[in-house]
Every structure is written in structure tokens, then in C-alpha cells.
Design a binder for these strands. Sequence first.
RNA 1: GCCCGGUUCGUCUAUCGGCUAGGACAUCUCCCUUUCACGGAGGAAAGACGGGUUCGAUUCCCGUACCGGGUACCA
Length: 504
Amino acid sequence: MTDKRVRVRYAPSPTGGLHLGGVRTVLFNYLFAKKHGGDFILRTEDTDQTRFVPGAEEYIFQCLEWCGLVPDESAKHGGPFGPYRQSERKPLYNQYAEQLVAAGQAYYAFDTPQELEAKRAAMPNFQYNQQSRQSMRNSLTLDAATVAQLISEGHPHVVRIKMPEQETITFTDMIRGEVSFDTTQVDDKVLLKADGMPTYHLAVVVDDHLMQISHAFRGEEWLPSAPVHILLWKYLFGLDQMPQWAHLPLILKPDGNGKLSKRDGDRLGFPVFAMDWTDPKTNTTTIGFRERGFLPQAFVNVLAMLGWNDGTDKEIFTIEELIASFSMERVHKGGAKFDFEKAKWFNQEWIKQTDATTLLPEVKKVLGDSAANADETFIAQVINLVKDRCVLLNDFAQQAGYFFSDPTKVDTDAIKPKWDEKKTLFFTELIRTYETEQFWQAADLEKAFKEIAAVNELKPGELMLPFRIMLVGGKFGPGVFDIAALIGKDATIARIKHTLSLLQ
RNA sequence: GCCCGGUUCGUCUAUCGGCUAGGACAUCUCCCUUUCACGGAGGAAAGACGGGUUCGAUUCCCGUACCGGGUACCA
């Protein structure tokens, strides 16, 4: 077991947007695999054909690529253990189900979904278990001849696991330690559906075995069905072959309680999916972290710190650092409420510590047409000047936009109340002086500005805000003279003139 | 209902029996900044409850409460 090659898998069902909890599961898988020089596999769990959503699988691949968590093996990347889509593995599962039936560890059940539904309606707590199976239509209650006939006539049927009586199933979870279940409490889960597809329960065990998975990580919501999987391992491949389990804590909604859902994000105004997801049925788009302006490094960083830490105060981690210090032993047991404010802080830190040339392509996207043809060294200078005041990449639109085109709105209301003729004269004189400036350096511009103010007996402080408004349009941005220096003589003078005319 | 899991500041968390319970986000105050930020200094803020075990429990055990997850021919 210990000398087995580390192979882990993430097994999503492609039914919609990729939830941040899913990405965190991917992350922990990925970190664990890379830490131990193993393989990270993505297996598509598309056994429910009624929930097939076109494009959802490709979308998952794109999300992982954006996050930098690319699988070593998958339906897209190939690998020696394919196919990696369970729908394409359909013929594999039947033999295992038959094996279980032959061994008396599973049985055929002929009850239709409608019958079961009716049963549940009549008896809300109905469970198909070792008690109730005695009164249902299955190969345990029907005689062999009838069963053989029903099957040969093609009557739809499922295969259910036969939970043993009074057995305690115990296993060691890497996060929770020893966990036990009493088999009398767990029901006879369907293993093979009437359409011949396996349910998750059968598929996860068979595929984990066939793909030689060494460690199986999944969300805590799977803990209650673990005994079914343990039993299947015992029956089919032997407990000594079973991967080590780790059930990850859930990510909870920030207010109240419960699992974080897409709806919570909509309601509270933050993304839940990694990237924009457009539902092909309704054609509605749900915003993703990427489109909201997150750097993938920051997104991954946020997720890593939800339920894990390295034991120190360190919070900002690169993926390499995460790989180096990650360990399952330090993953929490309890769920964590998602805090979007803290998530934004991570992004801000990442923007601050990322250099301008790396940021450049993303910033260009945010700026759009206005910066499309701008010189890249110039854009980089702008980025360096303003990046400390950006929390999300989209903030560059406001913080950097005015370097590339004149402000669309000039907030003259902010300066009008204290405006007077003396100030008009000051700026007229400033224009004249600036027109003669040779070198156009921030320090020189400031010096000239203050000299003229002194001559006119005005306090520079009263003039800086108006000057800022003229250049950027509002009360924000880096030092005014830095801005003037960067946008150049022509734009500076033009913007002063323009605002002066607005104030007439 | 039953089964399983969880429980440290508002939030994420540190603590592997010795705690004046530490850090971060958010919040408040001040400084820096003649803008908005960034940055700096400081403040307020926590061990669900009850029993044990122990010289000593946030830490170990049991119970209670609360929260969550599961209870589908969905994953």
C-alpha cells in the first residue's frame, strides 16, 4: 500500500458550472499528487444520462486550465487507463454486478421507480433495506424460475447490494480518523440501473480499482455512503487494495448555515463558479471568479486556505509553495463559511505582488479598445503606478482608464464651490509654463506648479484637487504629477483647457 | 425520525495538557497622504454547555445543546 504509486482522481459529473468547492477538491487532489510525485486523473462521471448537459465537460477542462490544475490523465488528455468517461466504460460494470449477485452479495430487483415512489409517498421513511426487501419484488423473494423468466423476457431490473446483517464497518479516514457504521442502518443501494449504467456507488469502486487509484478524496457529503463502497471493495477487490479515503469538509454559505450554492452567490453578489457558466437550456449566464476579476493564483490561494493551513501565519502561497507544504493531516474536519471579502483581499495581495509585465495581458483585456494599440512599456508603467489600488482586475478600468483616453466625465461639482477667478488665472498661467517645459518630469512639474501658486498667493493644496479632477475626472488615482508626467504634455494641457471651458 | 460528522473572536484559523488564548479579513481610532488607496501604530472581539480524567484542561473521555451532511434507478 505504502509503496504504491500515488494516483488520485477528481470525478465530477458534468451537469453545470464548476463550483468553488469542486475546485478545492481538485486542488487538494492536485497538491497531494504533485507532492508525492503521483498522477492526477480527471474522470468524467456521466452515468446519469438524464442529466447530460452539452458543453459542461469541456467547461470543466477550461476551468482547470485557467486554475493551472491540469490533469495528467483524462478524457481530453488521454492516458493508459482510459476511457476516462464512465458512459464509455458502460460494458465494464455489468460483470462486477453479476459477480456480486452470483456470490449472494447483491440481488436483482424488479420494482419500478413508480412503485417505489408510491411506497415512499405512503411511507415517508421507507428505505429499501434488509427489512423491507423481504416484501419487495426481487430475486430474494421470487423463486429462481420466475427471476430467470423475468430477465429473459427483458423486464427492467436493477441490481442492489445486499447489506449484511449486524455488521460494523470501520475504516480510517485520513482527516477524521476511525469512522464506523452499522450495516443494519444502511440501505440496499442500487448498483446497476435499469438502463445498464452503474450508479456512482459501483462505478467509483470499479473505476478506482481499474485506474489504480491510491487515495480517494471527496466531499463530506459522501461519508454516509462510504460503508457501501467499503463493502464493495471487500467483495470485489479486497480491502488491502482499497485506496485511502479522505472526506473533505464542506464550504458553507457566509450567512446562516448550509452548503454554499450558486443561489447564495447570486443572492449575496459574489461568484461561486470558477468561470462564467451559461446554461444551454435557459441561456442564462452565471458569473465566475475569472470574469469577476480574479487572478487564478489568487483563486487557488483562497481555496487552499479554506480548510487547510501550514501551521504558520503564512497566508499567501504560490502553487509551488502549496505543493511543498501541503499535507492531508492539516486539513480541517469542520466546514468553513466562505468570506468573499477575504477572497478579495487575497486577490489584492496577488495583484500587488505580480509584476506589471505578467499583469499586462489581463489589464489590456480589461481596458479594451482604448489601450489596444498603446505601447506596452507605457501600459506597464501605468500598471506599476496604479496596481496597489486595485482589488480586482476589473478595477484597472477605473484606475488606469484615464491614461489612455480623456475622462468621459469630469467631476466639476467637486471643485465648483471653491472656484474663483484667481484659480482660472493660475491654471492659465500653468498652461503657459507647462507649454515651455523641456523634460516633462514629475518633480519639475510639481516645482513649477508650486512656484506659480506662490506667486499668485494661492495654497498649492487648494489647487491640487482641481488639477487632479482635470486630469483624471474624479477624486482618485496616484500622485497628480506622476499622472501628468505619464500622460504627457499635450494631454495634460488639453485636459486643463477642457475643464476650464466647462467651468466658464 | 434514523445514521454519520462537526463545534476557538462577526469570518478564516493557530494551539498536538501549562494561555497574559496568537495571526489574518472585516470593523473602530490615530499617523502618513493637500485625492482615493497603499502603508504604519493601536483598540474592541473567542474556547457551546454540563460532567469526569489530571497538579493543571481550549486541548483527553462521556453526556447535552446547536449546526451540518446523508437517508434517489443524482452525483
